[in-house]
Design a protein around this nucleic acid. Structure first.
Length: 379
RNA sequence: GCCGAGAUGGCCGAGUGGUUAAUGGCAGCAGACUGUAAAUCUGCCACGCAACGCGUUACGGAGGUUCGAAUCCUUCUCUCGGCA
């Protein structure tokens, strides 16, 4: 079954804000939105087993083209039955194209019209990622949602440079669209333009020209949360997201914090992904309905309380802050696991709760209450 | 008892006459992290202040040499190894 178009639960005419609930089908299950997608770059959502992930309940998880193409290699993954089978995850998978690595590994790559020449971060060996190669890797991985290869420019890139980068991203997008993917795979286009509304809209027009001949299954907003001021990111989202086609999923890439998710949903974003919940979990920074806590802080040493009394995750059901504090202080692996389970549960749960509130027509109240609660934990 | 080695800030451990309140590491106290080169990285970490500066104690104890000592000398105490 091919990844299909968005179907909406709340028609535009019945909505009081751009925020919306929706969903679409993939061959590995339905995706209900808004949804937060945990990142599993190297074929694992760091710190969790698929069974634990199943309980957390994400709609989709991510894998990465650059990383998996390098190790263990997409051909091997294909030989072993594809990424779903390889990593033991039966639900939908989205693979990022390697576009973000063009940004994050900037010191180890060179961009040309043909593609991106990378030095492997493992051993320095040379590799070339073209739009076609990115598609080939993602086809081999067998993900349900394939991301177009883009150039993710740094947040403070000069306008002129940004325009050149975007033009190339558009040309790459055409090549990605022309590449034959597997029957079940859907391709998402990525919009760039930094925090310039005119560049964003211009790029969107170019994307929609391609879309008119050969439709994309979704649209992503890329190039945000990459160093630009938060106010500029929010202004851009507020001005731009509602311009994206209504009838297909909108994906805000690399975002983020609970605050950002709520704001994004309010602007009409359907999908999010971010490494923050798992990375911060590994670093002892935990999200709760009452704000953030740092479990390594001495003040939690003797606390019998759960992390978040309003959370029903495995970690909060079974362990005290004192225990989590202890595990972190002694450097036990279980600290990462329990913390990751919680942060992911919180983040996935936030988008799920938002969806429910949207379906029940009480989203504005939900958003206000959620924000008020965040202020209670730490002064 | 003799011979040898050594005693440094909470711990381990550099430093052997002067940019030394004293390298590092650990522990401790905080912070950062947004399509993962991140189980990572950063700051603080003797005491007292009218504190981006000043003062006071500090390298086992006591005494000495020197303009100046954690660093050299004497002695005491203790620790470790070897021989009796």
């Amino acid at each position: 079954m091919p990844t299909s178009q968005l179907f909406q639960y709340t028609p535009e005419s019945m909505r009081v804000s751009p925020a919306r609930a929706g969903g679409f089908l993939t061959s590995h299950g339905q995706v209900s939105t808004p949804a937060f997608m945990p990142v599993g770059t190297q074929g694992t959502v760091k710190g969790t087993t698929p069974a634990q992930l199943l309980e957390i309940g994400p709609q989709v998880i991510l894998g990465n083209t650059y990383h998996l193409g390098l190790r263990p290699g997409d051909a091997l993954v294909a030989q072993l039955g594809g990424l779903h089978a390889f990593m033991g995850w039966k639900g939908p998978i989205l693979t990022d194209s390697g576009g973000f690595q063009v940004f994050s590994l900037a010191s180890m790559r060179k961009i040309t019209e043909e593609g991106v020449a990378f030095r492997s971060h493992h051993d320095g060996s040379s590799h070339f990622l073209s739009p076609e190669r990115s598609m080939e890797i993602q086809r081999n991985l067998g993900s349900d949602i394939v991301m177009a290869l883009d150039e993710c420019p740094a947040g403070r890139m000069e306008r002129l440079q940004l325009e050149a980068s975007m033009a190339r991203t558009t040309r790459w997008l055409k090549r990605c669209r022309e590449y034959p993917l597997a029957e079940h795979q859907g391709l998402f286009a990525i919009n760039q333009g930094g925090t310039h509304l005119d560049l964003r809209t211009h790029h969107l027009e170019e994307i929609l020209e391609i879309d008119a001949h050969h439709p994309f299954q979704g649209f992503a907003v890329g190039g945000l949360s990459v160093g630009e001021p938060k106010e500029e990111m929010n202004a851009t989202l507020a001005e731009f997201v509602h311009l994206l086609p209504e009838d297909r999923p909108r994906y805000l890439m690399g975002v983020g914090t609970p605050e950002d998710l709520l704001f994004g949903i309010e602007q009409g974003v359907d999908l999010f992904d971010c490494v923050l919940p798992t990375r911060e979990a590994r670093h002892g920074r935990l999200l709760t309905s009452r704000g953030r806590i740092n479990i390594k802080n001495a003040r939690h040493r003797e606390s019998p309380e759960p992390l978040d009394p309003d959370c029903g995750c495995y970690t909060c059901r079974n362990f005290s802050r004192a225990y989590l504090h202890h595990l972190f202080r002694v450097g036990e692996l279980l600290a990462s696991t329990l913390n990751s389970i919680h942060n992911l549960s919180y983040t996935v749960g936030l988008t799920r709760a938002a969806r429910l509130a949207l379906l029940e027509n009480r989203f504005p109240d939900f958003a206000r209450l959620t924000r008020d609660n965040w202020k209670t934990e730490e002064p």
